[in-house]
């Protein structure tokens, strides 16, 4: 790795009981300040933070440490529209660990026009309490939800 590479997140340090169990550096993305927050987890589960600039940053760093989430945006195949792909996204951020599974599922899905922007393409995807919704209207005459077909 070149010395010019930016530092990536995450160094896990095991220390003895009573001291820091796990430590992670998080770059906050809530506002342009981009505070570098160091999050330390204690044996009793509490989190100590250094470097945050505000409460929102604290919340973000805590989420990033315990359960990082991301909004996934991709496409699914669509028939009978003037283009072959429909853009979609998760309605809310979902667990970062689950992104690949969702992507694989969506790579195998096909829908048919007309689709209205906002239509639910996959409800409660992988039980994560997030829907996958269409982010574009393609070939719509009436606003009806279309069930998608999942190949076996």
């Amino acid at each position: 790795m070149s010395e010019n590479q930016e530092e990536t997140e995450g160094e896990v340090i095991q220390e003895n009981a009573g001291e820091v169990v796990q430590e992670k550096k998080v770059i906050c993305v809530i506002c342009p300040n981009s505070c570098e927050i160091t999050v330390k987890q204690m044996p009793d589960g509490t989190l100590l933070m250094e470097g945050q600039g505000c409460k929102r940053g604290e919340q973000y760093a805590s989420d990033e440490f315990l359960a990082p989430k991301r909004t996934l945006a991709t496409t699914v195949r669509i028939h009978d529209a003037f283009i072959p792909l429909l853009p979609v996204r998760t309605s809310v951020p979902v667990s970062k660990e689950k992104l690949n599974e969702i992507l694989d599922l969506l790579a195998r899905i096909e829908v048919t026009a007309p689709i209205t922007c906002g239509d639910v393409i996959v409800e409660n995807v992988l039980g994560l309490e997030a829907n996958v919704i269409a982010t574009r209207t393609l070939g719509v005459d009436t606003c009806t939800k279309i069930a998608c077909e999942l190949p076996a």
Binding site: P84, L85, E101, L103, D104
Partner: peptide
């Protein structure tokens, strides 16, 4: 190849992360 085929093929090869 087509975008969706590509993902289906490459992830089959490498296994899920």
């Amino acid at each position: 190849g087509e975008t969706k085929d590509f993902r289906a093929v490459t992830t089959k090869k490498e296994g899920l992360e």
